[in-house]
């Protein structure tokens, strides 16, 4: 279990090397444009070198004092992330945020322990509707056209 905590420095190291690798793939600009300044790749590489040094210190800290172990997430957390994915799919399929938002809100309410289905349902319908009207009338924000918004916008 404890070994799992080394995943953090490992992940950060890997991330730094990936960024350095990607930076090295960037084009270089001609001398007359860059002049005495830096190439576009230099700054991210510089950042990642500092990051690697900090990760080294972090690993040393982990070696000296083990950090508190992290509890695994419970159902509502994973289900919420899954609902984000469902939200993405629904928006892609319907093209409409206002189809996806009520469905996700309704399911989120239930997965977070709301036992009265009608409360979740009212919340899921009333909130997006009022926010939509506020943005449409007051802030004049146009939302992407989809199943429902097509009916509204005509």
């Amino acid at each position: 279990m404890k070994k799992k905590l080394y995943i953090i420095p490992l992940f950060l190291t890997l991330f730094s090397f990936v960024v350095i690798y990607l930076s090295l793939q960037l084009e270089t600009s001609p001398e007359m444009i860059v002049g005495d300044s830096m190439q576009a790749r230099s700054f991210p590489i510089f950042l990642m070198v500092i990051n690697l040094m900090l990760v080294g210190i972090l690993s040393l800290q982990f070696y000296k004092t083990y950090p508190k172990e992290v509890e695994l997430e419970k159902f509502p957390t994973w289900s919420s992330m899954l609902l984000f994915l469902i939200f993405y799919i629904l928006v892609k399929v319907s093209g409409d945020m206002f189809v996806a938002i009520p469905i996700v809100m309704f399911l989120m309410g239930l997965t977070w322990g709301q036992k009265k289905v009608w409360i979740s349902l009212v919340n899921a319908i009333a909130t997006p509707l009022s926010v939509f009207l506020l943005f449409d009338y007051v802030l004049q924000v146009r939302f992407p056209r989809g199943w429902l918004t097509n009916i509204y916008y005509g």
Binding site: F87, V104, G113, Q114, P128
Partner: peptide
């Protein structure tokens, strides 16, 4: 109840991010 509050925060977040 958080089962009411946080779905509202979700809706405000995604609409706000879009706006």
């Amino acid at each position: 109840p958080i089962s009411i509050l946080w779905p509202i925060v979700f809706a405000l977040s995604v609409i706000g991010a879009y706006a």
